[in-house]
């Protein structure tokens, strides 16, 4: 079984985001970038399937600038066998390559690579869209199992437990299928130094969107990106009694 795992280079989840003063976007210069956390979970899950003998090959794919090669190398250090970068200098967070364009790009690659399974993050923590996996499944005419917290592969099917509001739902999908990962699925490993060294020697192809015949023109015009309304710091109370009094009589949020 061949697994394709899309990975995205995004702002590190611990970084405080600053909106640019001209409100054109978010400041990304000299900001720590990492693999999108949900994608780390995806590559970990694929690697586990390979270690258990259920998968034979893992291909990591990214769309972005040359720097996204680092993200692919990280995926290789965890377990990907080879990588493909679809190179573009367009922004991948806002006002550039949008989820629909990403889905079309991945579809073109999947038609060449014919994987049996695609495992990918449910959303990236920059644009927070949570769309690409579902869109890709639709474009391919494949079933989807989104927000996975458990994946079992059994004879041509994936049985997936999904995190839904208020509980867990289990569905069964025929492969090929798209699975998107939620936080509970696994805990990604730290890549070991020998594996980081080995990853440097794994094959990585760089191609262009034109070669795949996809168009990255955005459909959404980003008119502005602004700071959210700021919360004013309130007051410090000096005792539990004072807190209860404030909550009852000033904020009126408890009876």
């Amino acid at each position: 079984m061949k697994i394709l795992v899309p990975v995205k280079r995004a702002i590190d989840y611990k970084v405080k985001v600053h909106v640019k003063s001209d409100e054109s976007g978010v400041e990304l210069t000299n900001v720590k970038m990492s693999m999108n956390p949900f994608d780390e979970i995806a590559i970990e899950e694929a690697t586990k399937l390979k270690e258990s003998g259920q998968a034979t090959e893992i291909i990591a794919v990214s769309i972005g600038s040359d720097k996204a090669q680092e993200t692919i190398r990280t995926a290789m250090a965890i377990g990907a066998d080879r990588g493909i970068l679809v190179k573009t200098d367009a922004p991948t967070d806002l006002g550039g390559v949008e989820p629909l364009a990403v889905a079309k790009t991945l579809k073109a690659l999947i038609e060449k690579e014919t994987p049996d399974l695609v495992i990918m993050g449910k959303q990236s923590i920059d644009d927070d869209s949570n769309q690409t996996g579902q869109m890709l499944a639709a474009l391919l005419g494949w079933p989807q199992a989104t927000f996975a917290s458990e994946v079992k592969i059994e004879s041509g099917k994936a049985v997936v437990t999904r995190e839904i509001d208020g509980g867990l739902e289990t569905i069964s999908v025929n492969t090929p299928a798209i699975i998107t990962t939620d936080l509970r699925l696994n805990e990604p490993r730290y890549a070991s130094l020998p594996n980081i060294m080995k990853a440097k020697k794994k094959p990585l192809d760089v191609i262009t969107p034109e070669e795949l015949g996809v168009d990255f023109s955005p459909r959404l015009k980003v008119l502005k990106v602004s700071e959210p309304a700021k919360r004013q710091a309130g007051i410090i109370v000096d005792s539990v009694d004072a807190l209860i009094d404030k909550l009852k009589n000033e904020a009126k949020v408890i009876g």
Binding site: V19, D126, D127, V222, K224, V225, E227
Partner: peptide, 12 residues
């Protein structure tokens, strides 16, 4: 909201 609510995008 984008970036986990740390920015608000206005899109057309």
């Amino acid at each position: 909201p984008v970036y986990g609510g740390q920015a608000i995008a206005t899109v057309e």
